[in-house]
Design a protein around this nucleic acid. Structure first.
Lengths: 226, 226, 226, 226
DNA sequence: AATGAATGAGCCTTCATTCAT
DNA sequence: GATGAATGAAGGCTCATTCAT
């Protein structure tokens, strides 16, 4: 945010001021910024490139969002909310057998992360954030990620017959998430270690099923034992 | 690398010239560079900061390593070799029951990656490389990673009763690697989602055992079926 | 020119915006650049020195002209046009006896090149260009020099009674141009070999007349023979 | 010369110290420096490139010649003496009819300046000096150029029937020199304005003959008149 | 509400030079 | 006598930001 700039203190509240499609420049900036931030991350992105892609003046970013970090904050929070609440949460909250829910959430995550050739925009943003966190990460974790982490623990705990905050429950959630994250995160490695692999939708379904099978094998065995 | 610079092609063979602390500037540069590259990645690191931390002139990097990329190449390859050849490979090549080898390699990976409380320096270097690969990545994959990937496939294939290049073998290797990588990769998330977690050696052993148990559950069940 | 920079594509059409002294920084940069480029040539000139002389920030060059080469291009083309199209071409195209035209163009060239006591700014720019051509030279030759070279050949051809592209016609044009160019080109030598020489306007007229006499002697003799 | 460096105060006097082919490194440096200085001029040449081409250490130039300018001075003076005294002077001093001497010196100059594809090494050095004089130029003019300039004036004066320091004599010398210098100095222009031109030895002879004819036409006519 | 112009700090690299051996 | 190591200054350029309108 740097020094407190007078005009850059807008919030979403102003977006209804002039009726409907007001402030198209601001919207275009957000859209352009999301794409470039997703591609290169916060630090490697320049406001010049954003302005150019949005067909806006170089000073527009500072005018509308105060500074680069202000723009990034808006982009990241919007996108994180979108994926956390609109995509993952409904799957986790559907009424179905826990095992089916688990399988469906794995499919959803894999498709959302690696679908259509490359990871979805919100996921790419988060992937960068994971690598080199900005001051915005904590906010985003609280708003968009912890709720789903808790839901996952509840789900896996139900399958295990253990409470959601039991250490084993957590470790199992991590085992599942780690398997899923491996594909988008290690893709530059996979491209070199297994060049034949093409992440078609069918292949992604096959991968998701494998992860589900792999995980359920333990969850079932552990439940029996306990 | 840019234009081939005359000097900067040292191999360290000369390190006995003056008795002990020969070529300290070069070594200090490598050390400082490793730390800063690990923290910020190649692109966000400046040679000024490296020089400053090594207490060297800014032109020293150019003199000893040609340019920034030359220095980075040396740092990354050294670290990758250290992990891949010195730490992991001996574990994978020891004569023991496959299941024991698997468990031991998981322990070794976890300890090497998170040993000192947070992601280890070589791993943090690779994490940045995964996010935004440099021209050095391919080299490092060939030298330090593919051999161990192949050994892992052989090991897991033996446990599954499947050939090393069977799709299921590969997916299982990825499932294991994904679980391991989750902890260093998602550490900024974990720090926020499970703040109580302290990665003590004991805890890391517990985690490694969990990953081994989690994985063996599937590998055994799959073998019986086939 | 490097990457296409958004700004820096001004054409000066806007110079009436504020009444008179609009865009003074850009104009001052051009002026300062012309002088320093003329003195030291493209390669030995630094943008820092230009900025300093223009009392502008060092980034101003980049903003207004993209990069050093963009600024140089504008300087060189402007000056070349000024000489080639505004000064020499009208003389070559006037309706008069060929011999008179020849004498007048020699006078015009000498005055334009050495008028102010030493080699003129546009000529000094071209002198450096001759020594170590930049990518701009070809452009300038095509725009500002070839047309006049062709007109000279037509003129001399008419005097010789030979076609414009006859070898002898060309060699005669070169003989005339060489005599003219000698004074600005070899001025560092002349200053030492003939220190008494002061290039006053009268002296320049005397020199120009000599060159015309010297040249016409051959042209006339050759015409009779052919 | 910069600051007075102790070891760099060698002169040619030392070259006989150790017998015959002593100090080969120094000689190699001189040779390499001559080539690179001739190609790029003093300012654009780097001591690194010289050291590299001479297969010498980067500090060798400073050791042997004090600094870059010391090396350049030695190179330039040696070469200027060579061309002035060994090539041009004998032609100008031969016993023959003045007109024949003039023609021969024109041929010699043209061949030496443009022969074998590009100008001879000493001429290329001088050409750079002409464009952007260094502090060495005055020395070189006195030692190697003024004597021949004086001989040329004597020669042309004899043809004109005028004293050597008559203004017309000087202007005629300049007219001749200008025609000759045109080809090496304006070659980047010629390459664009007359691309078919190839400076073969035959073509150079043709050009030299033209320059001689062109000049003699005036010299003879002027003599008759006076 | 919005922008073209301008800024200062910082980037990587290369320069001629000097130091310690 | 000669060299590898090291240095400080400067090179062109790009950055996010701010100013004046």
């Amino acid at each position: 945010m740097a020094t407190g700039v007078q005009p850059g203190q807008h919030t979403g509240a102003r977006s209804t001021a002039k009726g409907g499609a007001a402030d198209p420049k601001r919207a275009r900036l957000l859209e352009a910024a999301a794409e470039i931030f997703a591609e290169r991350g916060y630090y490697a992105t320049t406001v010049r490139d954003i302005s150019k892609r949005a067909d806006a003046n170089i000073a527009a970013v500072n005018y509308h969002f105060g500074d680069k970090l202000g723009l990034y904050t808006e982009v990241l929070r919007t996108n994180a909310r979108s994926v956390g609440q609109d995509t993952i949460r409904p799957v986790l909250e559907q009424a179905a057998a826990p095992q089916d829910v688990l399988r469906k959430v794995i499919h959803a995550l894999i498709q959302r992360m690696c679908g259509s050739g490359h990871a979805s925009l919100p996921f790419r943003l988060m992937r960068h954030e994971l690598m080199r966190p900005t001051p915005v990460l904590s906010q985003v974790v609280d708003e968009a990620m912890r709720p789903n982490y808790d839901r996952m623990r509840a789900l896996v705990g139900a399958l295990l017959g253990l409470p959601p905050d039991h250490e084993t429950t957590r470790l199992c959630v991590h085992s599942i998430m780690g398997q899923v994250l491996f594909y988008p995160l290690a893709s530059p490695l996979l491209a070199r270690l297994w060049p034949q692999l093409k992440l078609t939708p069918q292949r992604l379904d096959r991968i998701a099923d494998h992860i589900a099978d792999f995980s359920v094998a333990y969850l079932q065995a552990a439940r029996v034992r306990s």
